[in-house]
Design a protein around this nucleic acid. Structure first.
Lengths: 252, 252
DNA sequence: CAGTGGTCTAGACCACGTC
DNA sequence: ACGTGGTCTAGACCACTGT
């Protein structure tokens, strides 16, 4: 702490502007930006509440409220006695936050993945709509087969904006945990997603991949994943056989 | 405030017991019990933070933290300038919290419901497992057909422990919003649920009800709903055609 | 032991809704 | 004007972690 300048980026409270935001939200957004901009990187220990409070010229309680909300949004993890860390996309987190398919008997595990294809092409209409792209922008298309306990369960198709993932293609072959790869190689932290689930009849190709008779019913999960700033960064369609597992959702 | 006795039900902090809980959690559980026991009823205005703090002999900040968590769990709703209210199961809340089926184009609406059957019988093995019942305990079975914009979309089968819902059967015919009925007639507040979703082939009966060819794929949603205290109070199985709507889930 | 996050307190002022 | 919840502060002590 040799440098204790007060940025005073924050409006103390009663600014005359009508669209007024609480101090702790300003703190939260300032700190979120540091994560999004990789000033603070995944897994890193960030300064203590005291230090941040002193740096920004606000009270520790205000910083705490900001950090609490960021922790609730899974941007941070806090450990009493140790400090506050930028959250990482480890498999345990993915499993809890993003992977909703669980076996009907037994405990959920992270699936294995077999890469089938990686291609690049101009985004089609569906991809442009899902990812908010302009005509002519290109996407990377990935097809892979995912298995639980050695049995193929998910045939998955992803579309990624090529602009956000320059040079992806080799790395995806070896990396099973894609969101961790997005963060470590491309600086893109997936913060949330919206899924639409339907029951459909499997295509002949997917049925064969999954070891089903052609025309068997499968779950179709359409996901649009978004980064910290809310921008869409991935569109994926997962076709799942659900004879021995289910899409599990807890409503609270 | 003529009565300012301090119950002192609360261990101030450093009780010698090892399984120690923070004060605000003790407050939260005490207040949650008042809702579960209907001392405070749905829609009712509860005392102000100040009054509760004085009654329990804790600071306002501690009460606030308890109320904040209860609000996050949708037990309460707070309105600045008005006060804090016990949450009600109005249709808007159900739609947001418990009804995940949304049309692919257009905005989500609460479905209409047509009652098909109400019967009572000893719980079968599946029902006993789902609802935690002992052999011999009875259930109420309800079958109904639910529609969006006049089109049948969900064929639904419910099993309810008869012990919890004495005399249910007539009321269910007129009431579309079941969880509101559970609360107002039987004092049971549904607080959460766990759903398992699969893709299956529809039975001939369900296909006919939903206007599908026999064997068309449908979404099967298995739900176990729990009350404030965590006890299972409802098991339902919903078979949904998803050609024009989807099961929508937001991951954060 | 020092440093961290976690809890708790007491009090101030603000924004909102009602009277 | 008054009472409500919402924000912000300052400081105390506790519980946990590493040295």
């Amino acid at each position: 702490m040799t440098d204790t300048r007060k940025p005073a980026h924050l409006a103390p409270k009663a600014a005359e502007s009508p669209g007024l935001r609480p101090l702790y939200r300003q703190v939260k957004e300032l700190l979120s930006r540091r994560i999004a901009d990789r000033v603070w990187q995944p897994g890193e220990l960030i300064p203590s509440e005291h230090q941040i409070a002193a740096e920004l010229g606000v009270s520790q309680g205000t910083v705490r409220k900001a950090l609490d909300e960021m922790t609730a949004e899974r941007l941070l993890t806090r450990r009493q006695g140790r400090g506050t860390f930028v959250a990482r996309h480890d498999e345990a987190r993915i499993l809890f936050q993003f992977f909703k398919l669980a076996p009907d008997d037994g405990v959920a595990v992270f699936p294995e993945s077999e890469l089938r294809r990686v291609t690049k092409a101009p985004a089609d209409a569906d991809e442009r709509r899902a990812l908010g792209l302009d005509p002519g922008q290109r996407v990377i298309r990935i097809a892979r087969l995912r298995s639980l306990a050695g049995k193929p369960v998910i045939s998955e198709y992803l579309s990624l904006p090529e602009r956000l993932f320059p040079g992806l293609g080799e790395a995806v072959a070896v990396e099973n945990n894609l969101y961790d790869l997005f963060a470590s190689r491309f600086g893109i932290t997936v913060a949330g997603a919206r899924e639409r689930v339907k029951a459909v009849l499997s295509s002949p190709e997917d049925a064969e991949l999954l070891g089903l008779e052609s025309g068997a019913p499968v779950l179709a999960i359409d996901r649009i994943a978004t980064a910290i700033d809310g921008a869409p960064v991935e569109w994926r369609r997962s076709l799942c056989r659900t004879d021995e597992c289910s899409y599990v959702n807890t409503l609270r």
